[in-house]
Each structure stands twice: as C-alpha cells, then as structure tokens.
Amino acid sequence: METDNWRRNKRVFFAVSVPQLTWLLIFFIIPLAAVFIISFSEKRGIIGHELVWDWKNYIRAIEPIYLSIFAKTLLTSTAVTVICLLVGYPVALAISFAPRWLKLALLFAVTVPFWINGLIRTYALIAVFRTRGILNFTLEWFWSIGASVLAWFGIEVGSYQDLQFLYTNVAATAGIVYVFIPFMILPLYAVMERFDKSYLEAALDLGAGHWRTFFTVLLPLTTPGIISGCIIVFVPSLGVFFIADLLGGTDSLLIGNVIERQFLGANNWPFGAALSFLLMYLTFAALILYSIVNKKSKKIGGVDV
C-alpha cells in the first residue's frame, strides 16, 4: 500500500506529530497535572500551599453547602440548555428555510455577538434588566396601552410598578442563555441545512399533518444536531462565572463563581483545584451518560445523519 508508507516511516510520523504533542503537553497536560496535584495540597499562609496528599479538600468539597451549589449549577445549566434548545430550534429551522440572501443575513446576526467581548455583552444586558432598564420600559409601555384599553371599559388599573430583574436568577439564566444560544443554533442549522426537505414533503404527501411531520420525521432526523448543540451548550455553561457575578443576585452563586473566588479571592488554590476536578468529573459523567444514550438511540434508529 503506497498510501500507508508514512505510517511505517516512523521518522516522518514523529516529525509530523511532535509539535502538536508538545503543544498538548505544555499547555494542557502539565497545567492539568499541576492543578491535580494542588488539589491534594493544603493551604499554608496567605498565598502558599504544601503538598500533603490527602482528601481533605475533596471531603470539604462534598459538604452539603457545596453539593447544593453543584446541584444548582446542574439545574441552571440544564435550564439554560433547554431554553437554548426551545428558542434555537425554531430559529435554526427558520434560517435553513430562508431564501439565500436572508439566510446569510440571519447567520451573520447569529454570529455577530462572537465578535464582541463577552464582558461588554453582559454589561449591555445590565442596561436591559436594571430597574429603569429597557425591559421594564417595554413592559411599562405595554402596560399603559393595556391600561388605557381597560380604562375604556371603566376598569382602573394602577400605574406600572418596575419589576426586579437584575440580580435575580432570571437575569443570570437569561444572560447565560444569551451567551450560549449561538452554540445551539449553529450545530442545529448545520444538520438542518443538509436535511433533504423532500422528507417533509413526503410525510405531508403521505397524510401526516404538520405536527406529526415534525415529530415523526423532522425531530428524529435532526436529533444529531440537538445532541451536539446540547453538549456544546451544557458543558461550558457548567463553568461560567462572570455572567452570574454581574447579573445574578447573592443566591445566583454557581460553582464557577465559587471556584473563581477560591482561586482569586480566598487564595485557597487547593480547595479551588478540588472543586475544579469535581466539576470536570461531573462533565465527564454527563458525556458518558450521553454516549450511552446515543448508542442506544443509534441502535433504534439505525441512521447516522
């Protein structure tokens, strides 16, 4: 086999792969190992720590207070993923059906936030959510229209009371959704774009209404996009901290915030490292769960799209 020669030629093989492996070693494996070792250390003094090889940090990390934060983080990420899916799916579908020029414009609109720093975008959301912010103004406007209509019928409603959005879980969740939704839309769109629209027409032709066409044809055939979108949103959203910091309230603490504070605020690197590794294990568990589910569904469907 002519084409397999490079495999046998070890020197070429090494020459090609050494740079990448070095990169991986220096920037991924070594730091990760360092953090792993630190997680078995003990905080000493104000910034120092000493390797003691015990599980103290991990034991502390599974105290109820931290477990509840882990649980809250899981819950938030799940909610974020579900919201991203519910909003992103129709959007991706609409883009894939749009005429070409509109398609390009919409894809541009979806990707344009990538070009703007996440911090700036989050601050922009503060302007939306704050007490006298855009959201409250909008609601007030609708309220006044509604009130004047009701006044017509002689029903008096009071003036609009500003709602508290900023520094609540709602704002934090909305902020995370806002940052992650392109990561849901793009993989979904990629699958839908390749999806042969005549499947939908065939279903319709065979007597399925629009809903049943959706559930029996579109949904099963776009599942790969749903899965990859959910993973790409769920996994990184477990680790966000600055969004919850800026938009959330005191009870919006996520595990990412705790880790950040351990490293930067409390200067307790060993404990922060232990929390980080727990978060990583949690992520692995989620991915393993996914691959098991995925294998099963593949066996049922028998398709790779």
Binding site: S198, Y199, E201, A202, A203, D205, P220, L221, G302, V303
Partner: peptide, 15 residues
C-alpha cells in the same frame, strides 16, 4: 394524490 419524489425521500430512520 401521492407523489414519488425524484430523490425518493425514503425516510432514513425507518426500515
């Protein structure tokens, strides 16, 4: 009226 599509459109996720 039923249609036989040019691409056949046989659903890939069903036998």
């Amino acid at each position: 009226i039923n249609m036989l599509f040019q691409s056949y459109a046989v659903f890939p996720h069903m036998n």
